[in-house]
Every structure is written in C-alpha cells, then in structure tokens.
Design a protein around this nucleic acid. Sequence first.
DNA 1: TTGACAGGTAAGCAATCGCTTACGTATTAT
DNA 2: ATAATACGTAAGCGATTGCTTACCTGTCAA
Lengths: 128, 128
Amino acid sequence: MTPAKPRLGPPRHDVFQAIGDPTRRRLVDLLGRGEQPVNRLAGRFAMTRPAISQHLRVLHQAGLVSVRRVGRERRYRLRARPLREVYDWVAYYERFWTRGLKSLREFLDHEAEREKKHDTFKRREPKP
Amino acid sequence: MTPAKPRLGPPRHDVFQAIGDPTRRRLVDLLGRGEQPVNRLAGRFAMTRPAISQHLRVLHQAGLVSVRRVGRERRYRLRARPLREVYDWVAYYERFWTRGLKSLREFLDHEAEREKKHDTFKRREPKP
DNA sequence: TTGACAGGTAAGCAATCGCTTACGTATTAT
DNA sequence: ATAATACGTAAGCGATTGCTTACCTGTCAA
C-alpha cells in the first residue's frame, strides 16, 4: 500500500490525545481547583518547569486551558467544555457495564454466544 | 535536572492513551455494534490489515477488547468496562459546563474574577 | 539601574508511534 | 497434498512525544 502521508503544519492537538498523558490529566485535576500560575503547578511534579510549560501548551491547543497574565506570572485556568466531547463519546458505553444480564452487550452478542456454545460441542462453524 | 528514567519492559497501554488515537476510537465504535473479525474491521479503514492488528493489540493490552477464535478468523469483541475509568474521570468535570452562572467554575474563580476587573482599571496586583 | 523572579521557547536526544512490507502459521477449501 | 484465506508478528521507516538544558523576554524589587 502507498505510504501514509505525513501530517504537515502545526500539530493541532485534539482533546482525546491531550488527556491521554497522565501528567496533563493531573494538570487538569489541579486546575479543577482553580486558576493557578505555572510555578505552583510545576512544583507538584517531578519534572522541570519547561516540561510543564509544554504540557500546558498542548492543553491550550486543545482548548482545555486559558491563560491570563497577572504581574509577572501567567495564571492558567481550566476550560472544561472541550471535555464534553470525551464525555459524550464515553457516556455511550456506560450501558455496556452498568446493566446486568440483559445488557446491550449481551443482546448484541447473542448470536455470537450461541456460536460459542456450539464450539464447545465441536460443531462446525458456518464458513467465514 | 537528572534525565527522566526510560520506561522499561513491555509498554502496558493505559485506557486513556488507547482511546487517544482516532483509529482506535473508531474500532471501539465498530465493535460497539458487536463482535467482529479482523478483516471486516480492517475493511472500514484506509490502512493495511496489519496496522489494524496492531491497533487491536493496543486495545487488547488496555483491556478494551477480547478475542475468540472461530475457524480461521479471530473475532474481537468490545470490553467496555475499562472505559469506566475514563467516564469517572471526565464525568467530574461535567459540572463545569452544564451549570450556568452559579457554576463551580465561577465559584472557584471568584477571587480571580475580581482581580481581573481591577486589572481593567490598572489597579496594582498584590505581589505574586 | 541592577538583579531576581516568572515563564516562554528552541535545540537536542532517546523512546515511542503509526504505518508500511515481508513473512510465518493455522485453518479451510479444492 | 496444495492452494487460498485469515491473521499475527517482525523489521524498518519517518514523524511525534516527552523530557532535558540553555537561553530569552518581561516584570517586580532593591
């Protein structure tokens, strides 16, 4: 197959990717308590301040934080709205684990379950 | 600062990272309709089957899918339970966008908001 | 004005990612 | 037996990530 085209331009970070990193999730958690300057945030991590700055940039590109300059510090605040996309996506699957025996999961796999049983008895599968 | 230690051993994929990739999210979506063999899944994407196999491996390591062999095909099925971790994390922030003027967000940033106003009037900030 | 502080940014580097092609291994069809 | 199918896996690749150190600018304090 022809090689996949490389992404060009500045990497527009999407929300799912942004929260894929545990450090950034912790940053979101910390900012959930309220606006905070970079140094205060960085103090909570075992890495350098520039590293945190870079994580904050990713969060910013994902629309998850905004900055405001106060004196010589920059205070970041959480913009949780983009998380809604994640929430909406994942909330759909809630039904897959909350319900019991009559779950949608089981309903959907009903046929598959029957096939599995037959497997146990060495029944032939219909040709794939 | 001393360089961060490289992660050793096989990369145990965590759920957040697993769903950080759009291809893997689509795989989850497809599997949400029910158990499916690899070829059927791969047919929906503009990439080779091995690429899909590798994505499925990541999902498997994250506990998001299970496999079952049927004849010569392997049928993957969704195991949505680990998504609960994502759901729980993100659900906390729902309040930040659902409520109106009296949101927790505003409550937490109440002080910050006042400072901002003062900024408008060129008032000095208390020393950071 | 000089220095200390807050923090962004660039460069560099090893590790990881996401993809490809090539190949190996079961299983089914002929 | 032989070929075809379904799939995994390894190797190789360029791009990206996550960190570091080094350096820069802007603001406050002395």
